[in-house]
Amino acid sequence: MQGVVKVNSALNMRSGPGSNYGVIGTLRNNDKVEIIKEVDGAYEIRFNGKVGYASKSYITIVN
């Protein structure tokens, strides 16, 4: 499943599905991501070869 990031500035990509996990990357508006699955209000995603988590509130599914 594919998604597009929709933010005003940037969205943190984290090592786990919550803000208490470390930041492993930054997503920008209109970045395209692969959605692997939904976990606790976040999506597990793949972006630029990395797998991490981002809030589903800022990712629009575009299948």
Rank of each mutant, 00 (worst) to 15 (best):
G52Y: 04
K37D: 10
R28W: 08
Q2R: 12
A42P: 00
N12L: 15
N30L: 10
V5P: 01
G41C: 11
V62I: 13
Y58N: 11
A54S: 04
V62S: 09
L11Q: 09
Y58A: 11
I24D: 01
K56V: 09
E44D: 00
N48L: 09
L27N: 00
D40V: 07
P17T: 05
I59F: 06
E44Q: 14
N12V: 15
V39H: 09
G41Q: 09
V23P: 04
M13L: 13
V62T: 11
Y58I: 05
N48T: 04
K56Q: 06
K32T: 12
R14A: 04
T26Y: 10
Y58Q: 07
R28D: 05
L27M: 06
M13A: 04
N29I: 05
S19K: 14
A54P: 01
R46V: 12
K37N: 12
P17Y: 05
Y21H: 10
N63P: 13
Y53F: 12
P17N: 06
Q2W: 15
G52K: 01
G49M: 05
G18I: 02
S9L: 10
E44K: 13
M13P: 02
G25M: 11
G52V: 03
L11W: 01
P17E: 03
G18W: 03
V4M: 09
S57L: 14
I35N: 00
V5A: 03
R28H: 13
S19H: 13
I45E: 00
D31V: 05
R46M: 11
R14P: 02
M1W: 13
I45G: 00
N29W: 07
I59V: 06
V39N: 04
L27P: 01
I24H: 02
Q2F: 15
I45M: 03
A42K: 10
A10N: 10
Y21C: 15
M1R: 12
F47D: 00
M13Y: 06
F47C: 04
E38V: 09
K50F: 08
Y21N: 08
F47W: 11
S55T: 10
V62H: 07
G49A: 05
P17L: 08
I45D: 00
L11S: 04
V51T: 12
A42M: 15
N48W: 06
G25L: 09
P17W: 07
V39E: 06
G41L: 07
K32S: 09
S57K: 15
R28E: 08
G3A: 06
G49N: 09
Y21W: 10
N29F: 08
S57Q: 15
G49E: 06
N29P: 09
E44A: 07
S55R: 08
D31C: 05
G22L: 13
I24Y: 01
I59Q: 00
N30C: 13
A54W: 02
F47A: 07
Y53S: 01
I35D: 00
N48K: 12
M13H: 02
G18A: 07
K50S: 07
N63I: 12
F47L: 05
I61R: 06
K50T: 10
A10V: 15
D40A: 11
G49L: 04
G49Q: 05
Y43D: 00
T60V: 15
S57M: 14
K56C: 07
I61Q: 05
M13I: 15
M13S: 02
S19M: 13
P17A: 06
S19Y: 12
G49T: 04
